[in-house]
Design a protein around this nucleic acid. Sequence first.
DNA 1: CGTGCTATTGAGAAAAATCAAACGTGGTGG
DNA 2: CCACCACGTTTGATTTTTCTCAATAGCACG
Lengths: 205, 205
Amino acid sequence: MGEAEQLSLGSRTALFREGQPARHVFTLMHGTAKLTRLLPDGREQVLGFRFAGDVIGYTGGETYLFAAELLTPATLCRLERGRFDALMRRLPALERRFLDLCVQELAATQDQLVTVGRRTAEARLAAFLLQLAASRRLRLETGTVLDMPMTRSDIADFLGLTLETVSRGFTAFRRRGWVREPSHNHVELLNPRALTELIEGAACD
Amino acid sequence: MGEAEQLSLGSRTALFREGQPARHVFTLMHGTAKLTRLLPDGREQVLGFRFAGDVIGYTGGETYLFAAELLTPATLCRLERGRFDALMRRLPALERRFLDLCVQELAATQDQLVTVGRRTAEARLAAFLLQLAASRRLRLETGTVLDMPMTRSDIADFLGLTLETVSRGFTAFRRRGWVREPSHNHVELLNPRALTELIEGAACD
DNA sequence: CGTGCTATTGAGAAAAATCAAACGTGGTGG
DNA sequence: CCACCACGTTTGATTTTTCTCAATAGCACG
């Protein structure tokens, strides 16, 4: 794909906003982004986070259905929508791949719906941390300490909570020795098992 | 598509369960179904409702990622997975159509995430009722009275609430004259505008 | 005409939000 | 280089929302 430009952008840059004409499809080469829906009163719902290797901004229609914002400095490939569509028409395998990708994203969003709709604050946070760990494993990154570039507020907007509740959750996990924060923007899961049990077994034991 | 069988099934029949091998793809010809994820403790999250014309049970992988259950007696077309895949391979247009469909479902699930994650109980209920009305409009059905075959408990499991909270919501809407329930399993939206405002403008006015 | 299910209503408890204050930390400019 | 400032975070007290538990009422079906 020699047709794509390469970009390097700073932290907190907006890739695009909800409702804008969908002019580009991006691939995140390095860095982290969040996808969000804005509410009329200014609050936002984070739909998900995206990491190195993820494709961002594919839409069936003419406009983006959500906003994308970088959480870290990042490098991306940017492909014009027209070229993307042409590529798609030319290569049925690509279309196939995007269908699979879309099914996967749908499943992930359904997971998130379960988490937000039916779990307690601490269980939501546990699910988020385990998700982070799993997505990192998928990217074959080594080491036990996770990058966590999102703020408490980002996490809260992802989990349908307030930032205070998220903060209290981290404090609780730290006190129980389930989690360690060796430095700003880094977490280590010391007891993933306990986090899993918090999610599955509703009660204590 | 002469390859599909036609089925007539009774209310509350399970089409398939979460985790089962995905042997069929269904098209709902008449009736209503709910798609659900089961939680370890027996509670469930409703992922969505499906109506006449909707395709149910397409999965990328080998197993269903959620369960599907009829809420009413229904007639369906059932196509074997192998035949479905063959059809897909033969007809690129079909693949294209399923990609669009998947993108749409993704957007709908993201909407639902916003509703469950960031709205009050009454706003969630309002969003649900307006969604019902919109989906009915898409199906070009006439009349102002909506079929609502789902129980309070189904609605609660969709909105991340309890059935009592849903019931109180209906009572409140009825008292305000926003909604009427002419008979069991039917609703009429007397003031859709008020419902919209409840969702958008957080406050009273 | 019961009987079982769904829905409503109420009272009290629990979870999370809100409001408020203080803390730490990294970055900036003097 | 240090002090200060802005921002994210933590923590606490209180309020609000929603859940839970419980009892009653309404309906459809047999």
